[in-house]
Computed example of a mutant assay.
Amino acid sequence: MYVTVTALIVIAPFVGLGLAVPLLWGSVVGPTDLVLAAVFYVVTGLGVTVGFHRGLTHGSYTAVPALRIALAVAGSLSFQGDVIDWVATHRRHHAFTDRPGDPHSPYRYGTSLRGQLRGLVHSHIGWLFGNDPTSPEHFAPDLLADPGIRAVSRAFPALCVLTLALPFALGWAIGGTWVAGLTALLWAGFLRIALLHHVAWSVNSLCHVIGERPFRTRRHDRATNLWPLALLSFGESWHNLHHADPTCARHGVDRGQLDPSAAVIRLFERLGWVRDVRWPDPARVAARRIETRRIETERA
């Protein structure tokens, strides 16, 4: 059953998009639309993963003020909520992971099959429609005290308009017609936002139910690694290590685990734009690895 759910949630929408492109090529989609969609997906997605998540939420590095604000703006263009509310909600998720108080736990309705399926819907999208606000004063007082971040937060409605207006304007400017602007708006605006939302929500839902758990987390915490989402989520789906060591700047620590967000942070570090990066510590990673602890126990 879980394999079926994974296929429906993760694979089916991407297969649908893949089939739509050749069928609509030359009429509703063209190379400009796909290039713009890819560029906006990468910029806004990294704004969330590198900026909102690893930087502002967990303090995995310290960025120069201009980059800190630029990443907050890029993340806001993802249409996932204003920066302060986003950070507060995610910090609350870590404080109460998979137990009462977690705003989007898939275990809200128990561990039976029915409860899990209902919980997946809740954690994927249902929680967005509930009346369960998170207090920024409690979970993000540091951001409320930052004038630059407060300004980005206040600008969120305007940035939502901008994230749609830019693809339309660029499509019109490149294609030369308002129809080209509309197709760019469709693919680089609406569909790009929907895909990025879907991937982020899948980390909230699937990455707490399906996948591997090679690292020890807190007793209630069931975060997992789910490799099919690694590239599209920019490394966020190596979720088990993240919950085992939340401030670590790299989530994919094992061989072959792609983590584009960590690569971008490394680039920023080399350019001198970030400092005090919390890279994986081999001893700390080994101490949290379940297999290592089990072998040591057996030897003792």
Rank of each mutant, 00 (worst) to 15 (best):
V5M: 11
I9Y: 00
V10P: 13
A12C: 03
L17K: 11
L17Y: 13
L19S: 14
A20H: 06
P22L: 07
G26T: 05
V29M: 14
T32F: 00
V35C: 03
A37S: 14
A38W: 00
Y41N: 04
G45L: 09
G45D: 11
T49D: 08
V50I: 12
V50G: 04
H58W: 01
G59K: 15
T62N: 03
T62A: 08
A63D: 03
I69P: 00
A70M: 12
S78M: 05
S78E: 03
Q80P: 02
V83N: 10
W86E: 07
T89G: 15
H90A: 12
H90W: 11
H93K: 11
D102C: 13
R108G: 10
Y109M: 00
G110F: 10
L113K: 10
G119L: 00
H122N: 11
E137G: 14
A140E: 12
P147W: 04
R154S: 10
P157G: 01
A158E: 11
A158I: 10
A158V: 13
L162C: 14
T163V: 15
L164C: 05
F168Q: 03
G175M: 00
G176D: 00
T183H: 04
A184P: 07
L185H: 08
A194Y: 05
H197G: 14
A200N: 12
H208C: 02
E212H: 13
L232E: 09
W238E: 06
L241W: 05
P246I: 09
T247A: 14
T247Y: 05
C248P: 03
A249R: 05
D254A: 11
Q257L: 03
L258D: 04
D259G: 06
V264A: 12
L267A: 15
R270I: 12
L271F: 08
G272W: 02
V274K: 02
D276N: 15
W279P: 08
P280L: 03
A286K: 11
A286H: 08
A286M: 08
A287G: 15
E291L: 12
